[in-house]
Design a protein around this nucleic acid. Structure first.
Lengths: 243, 243
DNA sequence: AAGTGGTCTAGACCACCAG
DNA sequence: TGGTGGTCTAGACCACTTT
């Protein structure tokens, strides 16, 4: 079961755990490269890679001649948020319901394996759910889950808990990727969402990472007439840009 | 003037130049680590770092046992950030051009006034631009600008500078609002974007605030076949997600 | 068998910062 | 002066793919 992790990845995990658990608060000093060399019995290059990557990923700040420190949490919150659609709908005072269309364990085809950034994927779960607002379908959720990250996924009762809610609770989300496209619905989508062939849809493709692995890949399809994606947020001091 | 660059950075620059200039097209094979070792007279660790970082940054794909290849740059625009579409396109190594369809000072109708959160709007500028990638229309920009915030807006040469670039430079952006919808194109949009009536489009509606006022309201229309909206970001270390 | 990338080591020199 | 990070080297072993 225990994957043979590279040494630098183990060091990164160790540091991330200490940050996430709160043991190392923002601003706290992190072990130096030489200290990591001693405690993990690794070479300095390996310790350097772990710390450097965590800096690039935004968790650490490094100051030459001084040390490495836990970075302050960024003021800017996620723009495209991970929200539970059931909460969203109920927050509007409407009735949420769902219909589970499919739920199974599947084997990954090459395209899926690439999305999961894995050459050989052991196990993958698939679920297809229609989410409804006041009985009207508003979102089709087509989701694949990495079994290595959430082994108990299929055991959940997705009438009571949405997959998003379960995954949020079960695994830490390190990174999120969203791609939004417009598309006309396939025949199956027309049938499941109860829409016509000429009703354009938003396709929100989302990948989330947990502990360095792709945890889940989901395609959320919204009929344009029933849903729009919205965000509003303050920008940081520099304005925006980020190359 | 010539900064002393680290070796791995010089190797990265060399590869990026070849990609940006088009000398190495997407899918083309990039020199292997050993070849870089020979041609740059560096150690393999240094070559490895250059290639690995370019992979993490999304420019290269590496396949163990096979080689390193130039990645296909997808046509997509940032959801989260305010980015200049001309930069985006040029970063992909493609040619940016634009066509100004309309440019004028207008009086606000009630609906526009409401969008600007203003009871009485003195002056409003309007501009309609088609943005092109390699000569193909990829975005229709329909923008209104609050003259009180950017009085010199209409004086700009929008062939040289996009409205986004000018507004970013001229006014601080305090707050951003995005709404994304899918829609079939209107007749005018079909004509300006050169698409058929059944090609769905993404409509990104954006408002930005500057010093407490709505500075600009824009509707950006993307043909689905040519562009997607994209965002990727890390969640903060403590895994606290919004909502 | 030869070549590829993935990782790791045990050194090294440097600029920088602190006491 | 000793510790820090930033970089670099010249090897090495491995799993993998192609020939």
């Amino acid at each position: 079961m225990t994957e043979a992790q590279p040494l630098y990845a183990r060091v990164k995990d160790h540091i991330l755990q200490n940050i996430r658990s709160g043991a190392w608060a923002p601003g706290a000093r992190v072990p130096s490269e030489n200290e990591l060399v001693e405690s993990f019995r690794i070479s300095r290059m390996t310790a350097n890679r772990a710390l450097r990557e965590l800096m690039v990923e935004g968790f650490l700040a490094r100051v030459p001649g001084v040390g490495t420190f836990v970075k302050e949490a960024p003021a800017r919150s996620s723009l495209v948020e991970l929200r539970n659609i059931a909460d969203e709908i109920e927050q509007r005072g409407h009735r949420y319901s769902s219909r589970i269309v499919a739920k199974s364990e599947v084997t990954a085809n090459p395209a899926l394996a690439e999305e999961f950034e894995a050459r050989a994927l052991d196990r993958l779960f698939h679920i297809l759910i229609v989410h409804e607002e006041n009985g009207v379908p508003v979102q089709l959720e087509d989701r694949y889950v990495n079994a290595a990250v959430a082994p108990d996924f299929l055991k959940q009762d997705f009438v009571k808990t949405t997959p998003t809610a379960y995954l949020l609770a079960a695994t830490p989300v390190d990174e999120l990727e969203h791609t939004v496209e417009a598309a006309l619905p396939t025949f199956d989508q027309q049938r499941l969402l109860g829409i016509g062939p000429l009703e354009p849809c938003l396709a929100l493709h989302r990948r989330s990472w947990s502990r360095g692995q792709v945890a889940t890949v989901a395609t959320l399809t919204y009929p344009a007439s029933r849903y729009a994606l919205y965000s509003r947020h303050r920008t940081n001091a520099r304005g925006t840009l980020s190359q």
